[in-house]
């Protein structure tokens, strides 16, 4: 579904991704973890062409991702994206946010798009807030609308960039709950997250990024249970120390 080979990316002279190889099969959930600045966001942004890249290849359903190619718009309708800061359109209601892509990009009939959008709003638990504007919703609710907006395009995969890091702790659960459901339903997902319990529970594969490389990848039991690379061990130890209450 998504196939990344020897991906290289720099910002000017700063090398951010230095040879990433990653296969994401249909129906798989892949979690990307790693310290700040390791290139997790950049990798995601390359996958749906929000960034250019200098070396290697990214293929989505065998189509090469190229920010400047005509095909990028089609690829983006197939690969949804959920942002850390939600990025809902503030001048449109929740329902309009969800309908925007289907109606204006895919030219679906408004009636059909509306019915589908209502269904998705119900799915994310917001069937009662269809006409709310984003600024009338909590962060967790906004993020769930953003997930519904991505789903409305009937994507083959969805990319999540730290979807819960901008949320108050008590709102994290409702968003992870929706994502858990999607994972169970077989949605292909690439998730950048610091929620290790979630990553451990839902992912088929966990990749640990460090300095623009995937230094360790594998099933969650291995990466979390017996990390092989010292960097991974170090990262997980720090994370445990900072999140575990002093006993």
């Amino acid at each position: 579904m998504i196939s990344i080979k020897a991906l290289h990316k720099s910002y000017g002279s700063t090398r951010v991704l230095e040879g990433i190889d990653l296969e994401v099969n249909s129906g798989e959930v892949v979690c990307l973890i790693g310290p700040s600045g390791s290139g997790k966001s950049t990798l995601l942004r390359c996958i749906n062409g929000l960034e250019t890249y200098e070396g290697g290849d990214i293929l989505v359903s065998s189509e090469r991702v190229d920010r400047h190619a005509r095909s990028i718009h089609t690829i983006r309708t197939e690969v949804g994206m959920v942002f850390q800061r939600f990025n809902l359109f503030p001048h449109r209601t929740a329902l309009q946010n969800v309908m925007e892509g289907p109606v204006y990009v895919k030219k679906e009939s408004p009636t059909a798009a509306r019915a589908h959008a209502v269904e998705l709003m119900e799915k994310v638990g917001l069937g009662h807030r269809l006409d709310a504007y984003p600024d009338q919703l909590s962060g967790g609710q906004q993020q769930r609308v953003a997930i519904a907006r991505a789903l409305a395009m009937r994507p083959k995969a969805i990319l999540f960039d730290e979807p819960t890091s901008a949320l108050d702790p008590e709102l994290v659960g409702e968003v992870l709950g929706v994502m858990r459901t999607l994972a169970k339903e077989g949605m292909t997902m690439v998730v950048v997250t610091h929620e290790m319990a979630f990553a451990r529970e839902v992912s088929d594969k966990v990749c640990f990024l460090y300095g623009g490389k995937i230094v360790e990848a594998g099933v969650p039991q291995d990466v979390f249970g017996r990390p092989a690379h010292p960097r991974t061990q170090d990262f997980l130890r720090r994370l445990l120390n900072s999140s575990e209450p002093q006993a």
Partner: peptide
């Protein structure tokens, strides 16, 4: 906002 719009294929 622009990125969100791009991400739904606009």
């Amino acid at each position: 906002q622009i990125e969100a719009a791009e991400s739904i294929g606009m």
